[in-house]
Design a protein around this nucleic acid. Structure first.
Lengths: 147, 147
DNA sequence: GCAATACAGGATGTTTTTATCCTGTTTTGT
DNA sequence: ACAAAACAGGATAAAAACATCCTGTATTGC
């Protein structure tokens, strides 16, 4: 389980977020897979798949051919961590009993209700954080930037 | 990614929690793997491994041989969801930069700080929920119980 | 003592996730 | 037009997670 970030987030989510943040920081220049890979330390072949997924959902825009590359498809203050996560590895709230007990159909038991409330709190953090907020954070460490 | 609960919690965590809750509900009778498996709908061979892990960490007690089985090793109000999760598939807070950028050594960048704050909020929910609380919840649906 | 019950743990198999490779297509700059 | 740049997507491979099977050992009830 060492490959999961915090034992919770998949590598794919981590990679997608790094790529998106990198693109948010480069609003004026198309970024090739190779460039993003270098900046984010994500293996480029895998990154390519992740970018395909982000493209399909319209989070990024792609231009093919020479001098092509990727570009963020929205303003960074209109895109949240949540949008990225939902695109590549969706966080799904628990809505029905995993055991399919008939009496739990309408209302989760307390165990799954608690687990779902943990998911809810993640959802809240992610929904409320835009890329702009990440970049303008008072935190001296800038994402992906060794300054 | 369909096998992960909410795209976040591993099957193993889900299984361990079901087993522990079942044991908490049966404080007076040793429960065999077969009994727990039936009540929780966890595949018994896999459940056996999970119970071994819980035993090694002292969350449950085992008695081998005829009329043996498992028993919760603590009072249900002294065991939290967090204890169970940490035993089988630990939630690890993000403490160092996954990219190992030297400037992030001491302080996470805003991206990983946010991800860690999501982990923190899960940790808070899990740490604050005891098995007793799960069982005494005003929620009409009792865990594992089709009533 | 002995047969039956029940867990321990190694070996093995399957599925999902992560990662790479290669061929084909699009687009550009000359 | 054409060579080079760059992505798309299928095939394949490696690793981790999930799951099963089987043999051995401990314990009990008779």
């Amino acid at each position: 389980m060492a490959s999961k970030i915090g034992g919770m987030f998949s590598q794919t989510v981590e990679y997608a977020l790094r790529a998106i943040v990198h693109l948010a920081k480069q609003p004026d220049a198309l970024q090739t897979t190779a460039q993003i890979s270098k900046a984010t330390q994500v293996p480029s072949a895998y990154l390519s798949k992740v970018l395909q997924t982000l493209t399909r959902d319209g989070l990024v825009e792609v231009k093919r051919g020479v001098s092509g590359g990727y570009l963020l498809n929205k303003s960074p203050d209109e895109m949240t961590i949540y949008d990225v996560v939902q695109c590549v590895d969706p966080l799904q709230r628990i809505r029905t009993c995993p055991l399919e007990l008939s009496s739990h159909r309408k209302r989760l038991c307390s165990l799954h209700a608690k687990m779902d409330s943990a998911l809810e709190s993640i959802e809240n953090v992610f929904r409320s954080t835009t890329l702009t907020e990440l970049m303008n954070s008072p935190n001296p460490s800038v994402p992906l930037c060794n300054v």
